[in-house]
Design a protein around this nucleic acid. Structure first.
Lengths: 168, 168
DNA sequence: TTATTTTTTCAAAAAGTTTTGAAATTTCAA
DNA sequence: TTGAAATTTCAAAACTTTTTGAAAAAATAA
């Protein structure tokens, strides 16, 4: 496969995967393009390469910067801003996990804490079912929280190495 | 908080969370309702409780059954079908991970294998950047694959217990 | 059987999300 | 300063996904 074709495949597939991962298609495509670009690109480069509008490009670059996945690069002597993606994939995964944890898991745990305090006699079958479900989720949720925090801080090899020891 | 209100909160929040988790809102709401129901419910119960149409209810119940999260229950002497959700949350998490891995991670790994075989001289900067990105992803992806497989098979306490030992 | 109830399907409508592009704002070199 | 270039904003349009509901199919009791 030729490089140009491979790049295109990569960008379009990463876009499709992104949609399953809480990231919209364009955002994922811009990310993919920057990941496989040897040098930083301008907004115009990205617009042209992906055939998307200026507004769309701008909004999604900004979102990628918020996630910490892309950074603005100022090249001396250039008027335009350039953008480049974090290339260390393990760092990328940690950034994504960190962001999604903050947006999804943390609010869920907060909610479960509130819901566990439902009024009523726990010997009542319907109360029991509710409380048991909520408590079960809270337990698993807290464990996931710890595990993910560990992962966010961990070095790639430490983490995987440790896990691998467990199955031997 | 009263049980009725708590249930409603739980259902509506689980619905909202679901949308971040590759599960549509109604599917997640039906799942939530069944999780906190002490007894199996019929399609009509679900329609009424969530104010949704018959078709919508039917399609989403079917999808929940496909994921293994809900099962059909036949009660003797009853004409209608009843539905109940798997209540063991650790099992629920494993089922969701299993399904999402199959739909998302497995195809990604397949794609990366193909893309790694791009033609050209790896001393070429643009080829190198592409191959490095793809290889990096493949490495992390394979590790995630193993870790998730382990998790899918693992007992809750074995898995978490082992992880916890590592941070002490 | 046949009639009635229950479940399933699917085209069209509604709802939700993303994208566009032109106007407003900001930046910066001269 | 000023004006050209670059960036940002956001309402409307395009697109995508979900939901509805009525009709078809399947299941079951009599």
């Amino acid at each position: 496969m030729k490089l140009t074709e491979a790049k295109q495949q990569f960008i379009s597939s990463w876009g499709a995967f992104g949609t399953h991962w809480g990231i919209n298609r364009t955002m994922a495509q811009i990310h993919a393009l920057l990941l496989v670009s040897a040098d930083p690109l301008t907004q115009d480069d990205i617009m042209e390469e992906l055939n998307i509008s200026r507004g769309n490009t701008n909004m999604n670059i900004r979102e990628l910067i918020n996630w910490g996945l892309v950074e603005r690069v100022i090249l001396p002597g250039e008027r335009k801003e350039f953008f480049s993606a974090e290339k260390d994939i393990w760092k990328v995964v940690r950034l994504i996990v960190k962001e999604r944890k903050k947006r999804e898991l943390d609010p869920l745990l907060k909610l479960l804490d509130q819901l566990e305090e439902v009024e009523g006699d726990k010997r009542d079958k319907s109360i029991k079912t509710f409380v048991d479900t909520v408590s079960g989720m809270k337990r698993i949720g807290k464990q996931a929280d710890k595990t993910l925090d560990m992962m966010i801080k961990a070095d790639e090899h430490w983490f995987v190495g440790s896990l691998m020891k467990l199955i031997k």
